[in-house]
Design a protein around this nucleic acid. Structure first.
Lengths: 147, 147
DNA sequence: CTTATTGCAAACACTTTGCACTCTC
DNA sequence: GAGAGTGCAAAGTGTTTGCAATAAG
């Protein structure tokens, strides 16, 4: 089980390991960003964290999300939605982006692995990261549309 | 051969078919955007078109690129690069994005089709479009790095 | 006590919009 | 000649940066 849910202690250690200080703001931001499954935007993280830490600034949120990316604990998704979204699932996976409600769902498919393996195999291009973003309408919105 | 290279006459017809006027600016923009294989940004299209049509504005370029998207003649790529890039190849394909030189290359792979077919098959999500963006270092930059 | 971090405001880059003038059809 | 399109400048986004005050180690 490589659960992405991290305890505060794990978060603090991960930060300190790389020489980052474990400030209360950072811990709160990390706690939310690393446990959320809704692929939050920076704004979303900000408004959630603000509930707990009313003085936190958006710029601290942006900076902390960059730190988490650097630590490899967060993936940045540049979808065609206006805002960048963040995903604590850093494993190989597909993002299902609903164009109606902006929900992003994760999906696993072994074929994807095969695909990337093949691209990496052809010595023409060295793959460092990749995103498979699929756009459409999710089940919820489809059901809603019928009504 | 469904060549993406369009003649001026084809461009004019496509525009008029949908009620758009075929202005010289538009034709010049289309001519470049639809034949370029370098996945140009709006800025790039602008500076190329400016060579021919010195008074063209960036806003006209943006508007025309939207029209071309609407006509299904152009695909918008929201990569993690700062600027949106446009691709006249609207068929199913993979984008190889070089993080060093910002070059984007198209790649075809039948596995991709299978992948999308499978996602569409599971009635959970209705796929309308998708992008498979692979990031890394292209052959050119790799060779350069060795030197 | 040193140094990183915070939070604010200001700067940024890309894209979109409002509007008077112009050109297509 | 009617209405869409142009080009300008101005507004809008989301994100980043500079810096004095603050807090972590």
């Amino acid at each position: 089980m490589s659960d992405s849910k991290k305890s505060d202690i794990q978060i603090i250690q991960a930060l300190r390991n790389k020489g980052y200080k474990a400030t209360p703001q950072r811990i709160t931001i990390c706690r939310f960003a690393l446990s959320s499954r809704e692929h939050p935007s920076a704004q979303k993280v900000y408004s959630e964290v603000k509930k707990i830490h009313s003085t936190v600034s958006l710029s601290t949120v942006y900076k902390t999300l960059q730190v988490l990316k650097e630590l490899g604990m967060l993936q940045e998704l540049s979808s065609s939605l206006s805002q960048t979204r963040f995903d604590p699932n850093v494993k190989l996976h597909i993002n299902l982006v609903c164009l109606q409600c902006s929900t992003i769902e994760d999906l696993d498919d072994p074929v994807e692995r095969e695909l990337i393996r093949r691209i990496s195999g052809s010595a023409e291009f060295t793959v460092t990261e990749h995103h498979l973003d699929v756009y459409g309408v999710c089940r919820k919105c489809k059901t809603k549309a019928k009504a």
